[in-house]
Design a protein around this nucleic acid. Sequence first.
DNA 1: GCCAACGTTGGC
DNA 2: GCCAACGTTGGC
Length: 155
Amino acid sequence: MAYWLFKTEPDAFSIDDLKNAQEQSTFWEGVRNYQARNFLRDDVKLGDQIFIYHSSCKVPAIVGIAEVTEEAHPDPHQFDPSSDYFDEKSKPDSPKWFGVTVQFREKLRPISLKQIKADPRIIDLPLKKAGRLSIMPVTEEEFLLLKHYHNSEQL
DNA sequence: GCCAACGTTGGC
DNA sequence: GCCAACGTTGGC
């Protein structure tokens, strides 16, 4: 099993939106960055655990956990001319953009970017180095450390 | 709202 | 295939 961090802007789609959609899974759509796309298409697998991260907001932070319930499938918006995600160069027989389906698991007490940056134990997380990557891998060690952050005596 | 960092585009 | 110009992301 692998671990990931997915960014989202809470004004557009927040952890609560994900929670409220719990009955139906949520298709993680609109990723239009090649590195992020490659992770989604090739490496994100059923059962993988995902940190949901709120970006471009008052307190950028990890706010919860979701799980992959369906592996990569083409993002239908790329074929829809009326969509912001439309890509005229993408063809249905060779789609360029993919998404995965995820389901809400739990909310966490927010772990702010500030805390993450200040923690010397977090080394590998791409978020630490000014990253604009919207889908990124998290090591098992760092995922578990962050997941249990607020239980830790080490703070 | 500013701006730094980085990704993408397109001319050559 | 280089690289300058431009666009976007995202923290502050």
